[in-house]
Amino acid sequence: MLELREVDTAYGPVPMLRGLSIKVQPGELVCLLGPNGAGKTTTFMTVCGVVRALRGKVDVMGRDMASLGTENLAALGVGLVPEGRRLFPSLTVQENLRLGYDAVSGRGPDFQPQLDKMCDLFPRIRERLRQAAGTLSGGEQAMVALARALIGEPKLVIMDEPSLGLSPKLIDEYFEITSEVHRRGTTILLIEQNAEMGLGIADRGYVLVKGRVAQEGPARELLSSKAAKSLYL
């Protein structure tokens, strides 16, 4: 569903990703871990096509990102949760969700039933539908950002540090929902700094250090691996 092969990227003269290779198979929840500056968000932006790969190949849903614009990803069934939520602050919660739905389903007729589903999954959203997204608390914004990615029922969801800035209680709730979405059959690439929580729900994991994969393997093995701990955990 998603594969990066020997990908290099840079911001101007500063190299970011150096020969990065990762793979996400259908039905998996893969966690990409790494400390600050490891290249996690650059990986997200590269997968989205916002940052272009200088070398290597990025395949998303069987399509080469070199010839596919960011705006075409959603129609392929890819839901995105960018770092810092990045909701449209002056648009209402419902309008944010509408955009997420239209993106994946191409303005299909089932917005209302899907909206109800999201409100069942995130009960706090229901009473905030008419409120400007920028006026929500951080936790609520995190839920809306996830709901916006899920509302079109994407096949693959890519999340960039969704737990950043959330309280421990909300982090638990957030990862529980993410795990539930995965159990229902959605493939997920979870880019995280919170290793315990991320690997706790993942099938496999990659540890990213200085733009390279330093270690990879099943999530449980990574959690208990001394080498992984010395690298990052």
């Binding site: 449209f88 955009l99 997420g100």
Partner: peptide, 15 residues
């Protein structure tokens, strides 16, 4: 309105 607020995320939303 979405593109006026965040062009990159608007593109992520298929705009």
């Amino acid at each position: 309105r979405a593109a006026s607020e965040d062009r990159i995320v608007a593109r992520m939303m298929g705009i």
